[in-house]
Amino acid sequence: MEMDAMGAARRWLADQGVRRVRDGWVSAEDPEVLLTSNEVALSRAGDVFAEDLDAADQVRLAFGLLDLLDEYWVTCEIRFANEGAQGPLPADVLWGGYRRRLEADRNIEAVTYSLWVDWFEDHTTSARAFAEVLGNDIDRVVAQRSEILLRRARRVLECSGPVCWTVKEPTYRTAAQLPALHPAVFRGLRASFHDIYGDLEPAAALSLLDRLDLPTDTQHLAELRHVLTAGHRNHYRSPRAWEDAVRSCS
């Protein structure tokens, strides 16, 4: 499906006079100027949502453009469209697009960055976004244990620091039933402490941390346990806490 979407995006760009060359992209408007993928995304991605297509096909085309360009700005235009006058976008296509790319066996940094800094840091969208990309089907992930589902779960857990603790704790606890997800749950807890918008409840987070089967030399494990035991919720609320933990644990 991603290959079909990518092909559609390539054809759409060609219709706009933009084509791929060996070292980048060129536009029919100025074929002597080499464009980067990011420049193409900045100049063209928003135009997808002005196309004479239904909203679902616009979203599919935008995701194809994301696959083709691998640029974070495409995800920004998707979110702008969702929040704009013609939004919200069809939820099944929007979140299905995110889920499929989170399951893909390739680099998807633009997708996880989008989740982290846009959907998860905004508390008006974080609960719905987290539920759609993992929370709603964490039981299926744990039951089926397929590598595709585990890949998605790991990626979401690791960037879920800003999600409200009450929203993500049940998913964290279910994920902790599966040892294969323990490192990702740990990284989610660590991000929940360190992210500027990170959120956790120290006692509950410590209880969860103690359930994880991790190597004793796991980097930052001792320090995280130290700050949680001391009752600290977030690095930015207690800026000296981590430094004190590093000294205590060294």
Rank of each mutant, 00 (worst) to 15 (best):
G87I: 04
E147V: 14
R128K: 14
A62C: 04
V156A: 09
V141P: 05
L149S: 01
L134Y: 01
A104N: 07
V133G: 01
A50K: 11
V167S: 02
A131K: 15
N107P: 01
A85E: 06
R79N: 11
L102Y: 04
T171D: 05
Q144L: 15
E109R: 15
V156K: 05
N107G: 09
L102I: 04
L157I: 08
L61E: 03
A56W: 09
Q144K: 15
F49H: 05
C164T: 09
G135V: 08
D67G: 04
V117G: 11
R154L: 01
Q86P: 08
G87M: 02
I138Q: 04
L69F: 02
E103M: 15
W116C: 05
A81V: 08
A110Y: 04
R154M: 08
F120P: 05
R154F: 00
R145E: 11
V133P: 03
D92H: 13
R151S: 03
R128L: 14
T75C: 11
R79H: 11
Y72M: 11
P88Q: 12
F120D: 03
E132G: 00
W73T: 14
V111A: 12
D54Y: 01
G97S: 09
R128A: 12
Y98K: 11
L65C: 08
D70T: 09
R60N: 07
L134D: 00
G161Q: 07
T124N: 14
E71F: 10
F120M: 07
L115A: 00
D122K: 06
G135W: 06
R99G: 00
A143L: 09
V111P: 10
D92Y: 12
D54Q: 07
P90D: 03
F80G: 03
S126P: 00
D52E: 14
F130W: 01
L102P: 10
E158H: 02
L149Q: 01
W116L: 13
Y172R: 13
I138R: 10
V93R: 07
F130R: 05
D122H: 09
R60Q: 13
V48W: 03
D52R: 15
E132K: 10
E132D: 14
L68K: 09
A56V: 14
I138P: 06
A175V: 13
T112E: 11
R173C: 01
G96I: 11
G64W: 02
A104D: 03
T112F: 02
Q144I: 00
R100P: 02
W165F: 14
E83P: 04
S160P: 07
R106G: 07
D57R: 15
A85N: 04
D54G: 12
D118K: 07
W95R: 05
W116F: 13
E121S: 15
T174I: 14
W95T: 04
C159N: 12
T166Q: 14
W73R: 10
G161R: 06
R173W: 07
D70I: 10
R145Y: 06
T171L: 02
R140A: 14
E158F: 03
L69E: 01
Q58A: 12
R100E: 15
E71N: 05
D54V: 02
D67S: 07
L66R: 14
G161W: 02
A56L: 09
